[in-house]
């Protein structure tokens, strides 16, 4: 039996494949309305005010008992910092990217780090680290294929993902977009690590078999994710890779990126996934909607199902829904604690 760990120690041990006192419970994005209200957060200020952001995100740790503190809220920061149109949503709807570039040459990232929203993330990381040194501070970032998709438009990404496998000229186009995305990813990753991130949580939502060809993911997606991952490892930081959809057909590729943990959604058969990847820990994979309207029984069953399937951390299949309730979040954490007491 491992003696009691802090949340940070627990998460880092899991990422290192070391024994834990109990399985960590971690999340992706955490813009939860109940915590926004309880912490005095105001829309849209909590997207650009680091203190407000940390107060909202921090309640996932202090109130619900989640082991990570995740900032920022949503996958728009990279895009807004590059000058793309972003609709800020509502208190219960995350911001969304509304425009894209026509040509790679239009992307200017020279002043990326100076953008207000990027600065907010970096300040929030520092602040979270000060306020919650015992938690795992995990910035939520957009991974290269998805960022390339934001730059060129998701529809173009999807179509180019098949055309580039057929024609060299199209591949050259794809590589150009990806190389820019990767440069931006590296700049942002380095700054987040310097600000004190304990791990980087990347969503490569658009690398999903729901949007691009699995063949494309293996030939093009894996190498760029690996390049980013190697860069992050050189800076001494672990990273987690999330891809949406049923990722079983690409999970071997995800494991080969060198990510320290893979995050999968509820469409994935956890047992099958853990059997394929072997030593790489997988986090998952409760249906997010359970946090809004699930019964205690449903939450407990899905938590146990993921862990029985071999997950090394309990996590929702996607971001935490804004209308999640604190009692349901607590039920989830309790279910993971109880499973650990019985099984570790």
């Amino acid at each position: 039996m491992v003696s009691e760990m802090t949340s940070r120690e627990r998460v880092l041990a899991m990422l290192n494949g070391k024994p834990v006192d109990r399985v960590p419970v971690v999340t992706g994005s955490t813009m939860v309305v109940e915590y926004i209200k309880k912490s005095g957060g105001k829309w849209p200020d909590f997207h650009s005010n680091p203190e407000m952001m940390v107060n909202v995100a921090g309640m996932m740790h202090t109130d619900a008992g989640i082991d990570s503190v995740v900032v920022p809220f949503g996958m728009f920061v990279e895009s807004i910092a590059l000058g793309l149109d972003v609709k800020m949503g509502r208190v219960d709807i995350q911001p969304s990217v509304r425009s894209f570039f026509k040509k790679p040459e239009e992307v200017n990232y020279a002043n990326f780090l100076e953008n207000t929203y990027v600065q907010t993330t970096l300040e929030a990381i520092k602040l979270a680290k000060e306020k919650y040194p015992e938690a795992a501070i995990a910035p939520f970032l957009v991974a290269p294929v998805t960022l390339a998709g934001d730059l060129m438009g998701a529809e173009n990404l999807s179509m180019l993902s098949i055309k580039c496998l057929q024609k060299e000229k199209q591949m050259a186009k794809m590589e150009k977009w990806l190389s820019i995305a990767l440069e931006i990813n590296k700049i942002y990753a380095k700054a987040c690590i310097e600000a004190g991130a304990d791990l980087l949580y990347y969503s490569d939502a658009s690398a999903s078999p729901n949007l691009v060809m699995p063949d494309f993911y293996y030939k093009v997606g894996v190498p760029v994710e690996k390049e980013l991952g190697d860069f992050i490892h050189e800076l001494g930081c672990p990273w987690v890779l999330h891809i949406c959809g049923d990722t079983v057909p690409i999970i071997e590729g995800m494991a080969s990126t060198g990510a320290d943990c893979l995050s999968v959604e509820q469409a994935v058969d956890m047992k099958k996934a853990t059997e394929i990847v072997g030593a790489v820990p997988i986090a998952g994979n409760l249906t997010p909607l359970l946090m809004v309207e699930g019964t205690e029984e449903q939450i407990v069953n899905e938590t146990r199902k993921g862990l029985n399937g071999g997950a090394k951390a309990s996590m929702l299949g996607c971001g935490t829904p804004p209308l999640s309730t604190s009692d349901r979040l607590k039920t989830w954490v309790k279910a993971a604690v109880e499973w650990s007491a019985e099984n570790l």
Binding site: S158, M159, I162, P209, V212, M213
Partner: peptide
Amino acid sequence: AFVPQLMIASS
């Protein structure tokens, strides 16, 4: 078939 195939067909 996958989504990108539907998309290029649609286009």
